[in-house]
C-alpha cells in the first residue's frame, strides 16, 4: 500500500523533475524548433548574464513568447489541481472541484459582460480588461454563494454545493442572454469561455506567482487538519480544530487561487477534478502529500496539453476543450472502475 513517508518525498522529487523536463521540452517546441541546450543557454544567460551570448531571435521567442505561456500553464494547472484536492477534502465530496462554488460561472459572466459592452461600443479605461472583469465576477459570485450557504451557521457541504449549483444556473442563463446580445460577435465570448493560455504575459505571471505560491503554502500548512476534517466535522472539532474558521480560510484561499487562474486563462475544466482524483487513486488520500502532488500533476498536465494545442496539433484547439475531451473519458474510466470495485 502506498503510504510510507519515505516514498512520498521520492514521488515529490520525481514529479518535480518531470515537471521541469516537460517545461523544458515544451520550450523547444513550436513553429521554430529550438534545441534544449539553446533554451537552457538563453535562460542561464538571462538570469546570470554570463555564458554564451544566444541568438537574439531564439532568445526573444523563448523569453517573451514561450516561457511566460509555459510558466503560466504550470501555475494555472497546479493551482486548479491543488484547489481541487482541497475542495474535495473540505466538502467531503470526491466530485467537488474548484468551480463548485460558482467561480467559473462568475468569471464567465464578468468576461462576457465586458465583451458585450465593448461590442456595443462602450469605451472603458484600459485597465478594465477581461481578466479584471472575470476576477471581479468570480469574487462577487463566491460571496453570493457563501452568503447563501451560511444561512445555516455551520456552512455545511450540502448547502455550499447546492448554493453553487443554483447561482451557476442563474449565471449560465445570464451568459446565454449576453451571447444572444453579442449577436455576430458571439465568437469572442465562446472563445474566451473555452479557455486559452495564449494571452499570458510576464505581468500575469507576476500576479499569479505570489497568489498561487502563498495559497499553496496555506493549504500545505493546514493539510493535517484537512485530513482530520475529511473524517467528520464533529470529531474534528473535538480534536481541537477550529473547523468553521478553517473551512472559511481554505475555501477563500483556494477560491482566490482559482479566480486569479481563471481570470488569465479562461475556464479550463476537469484539471481540478481529475488530477486530485487520479493521484488519490495512485498514492492514497493523505492530504499532506496529495495537495503537493496535485499541484505538480496539474502543472504537468496543463503544460503538456497546452504544448499539444500550441505546437503539435495542426490548428490551435482551445485548451478547455482539450482538457475536457481528454479528462472526461479518463474520469469516466476511473469512476466506472471505482463503482465496480465497490468503493
Amino acid at each position: 500500500m502506498a503510504g510510507r513517508p519515505g516514498h512520498s518525498s521520492l514521488i515529490g522529487i520525481l514529479l518535480s523533475v518531470l515537471l521541469l523536463c516537460v517545461m523544458l521540452i515544451a520550450a523547444t517546441m513550436g513553429f521554430m524548433k529550438i534545441p534544449a541546450a539553446e533554451v537552457v543557454a538563453v535562460i542561464v544567460h538571462r538570469i546570470t548574464g554570463s555564458g554564451t551570448v544566444p541568438d537574439p531571435v531564439a532568445a526573444g521567442i523563448v523569453l517573451d513568447v514561450r516561457l511566460p505561456r509555459i510558466i503560466g500553464a504550470a501555475l494555472v494547472g497546479g493551482a486548479l489541481a491543488a484547489s481541487g484536492a482541497v475542495f474535495q477534502a473540505i466538502l467531503r465530496n470526491p466530485l467537488a472541484d474548484p468551480y463548485t462554488l460558482g467561480i467559473a460561472s462568475g468569471a464567465a459572466f464578468g468576461a462576457s459582460l465586458l465583451i458585450v459592452l465593448q461590442v456595443f461600443g462602450l469605451v472603458l479605461p484600459a485597465f478594465l480588461s477581461i481578466p479584471v472583469f472575470a476576477f471581479a465576477g468570480s469574487i462577487a459570485t463566491l460571496f453570493v454563494v457563501l452568503a447563501l450557504a451560511s444561512g445555516s451557521s455551520r456552512l455545511s457541504s450540502t448547502s455550499l454545493i447546492l448554493s453553487g449549483v443554483i447561482v451557476a444556473a442563474i449565471l449560465s442563463a445570464a451568459i446565454g442572454f449576453l451571447k444572444f446580445l453579442a449577436d455576430e460577435q458571439v465568437g469572442i465570448i465562446i472563445f474566451w469561455l473555452m479557455g486559452s493560455l495564449s494571452g499570458i504575459s510576464w505581468t500575469n505571471i507576476a500576479l499569479l506567482l505570489p497568489v498561487v505560491s502563498l495559497g499553496l503554502l496555506v493549504c500545505l500548512l493546514f493539510s493535517r487538519e484537512l485530513n482530520i476534517m475529511a473524517t467528520g466535522e464533529r470529531t474534528a472539532a473535538t480534536l481541537g480544530i477550529a473547523t468553521a474558521r478553517l473551512r472559511w480560510l481554505l475555501l477563500l484561499v483556494c477560491s482566490l487561487m482559482t479566480a486569479v487562474s481563471v481570470a488569465v486563462s479562461g475556464i479550463i475544466g476537469f484539471v481540478g477534478l481529475i488530477v486530485p482524483h487520479l493521484l488519490r487513486h495512485l498514492f492514497g488520500p493523505d492530504n499532506r502529500r496529495l495537495i503537493l502532488f496535485s499541484f505538480l500533476g496539474g502543472a504537468i498536465l496543463l503544460v503538456v496539453a497546452d504544448t499539444l494545442t500550441r505546437a503539435v496539433l495542426p490548428s490551435e484547439v482551445p485548451i478547455g476543450v482539450l482538457t475536457a475531451l481528454i479528462g472526461g473519458p479518463v474520469f469516466c474510466v476511473i469512476f466506472y472502475r471505482r463503482q465496480r470495485d465497490g468503493r
Binding site: 475529511a230 467528520g232 488519490r280 492514497g284 488520500p285 468503493r343
Partner: peptide
C-alpha cells in the same frame, strides 16, 4: 459519534 462516515480511503 454514532456513525463514522469517511468517503476517502484513509488507512
Amino acid at each position: 459519534p454514532q456513525e463514522f462516515m469517511v468517503d476517502f480511503d484513509f488507512s
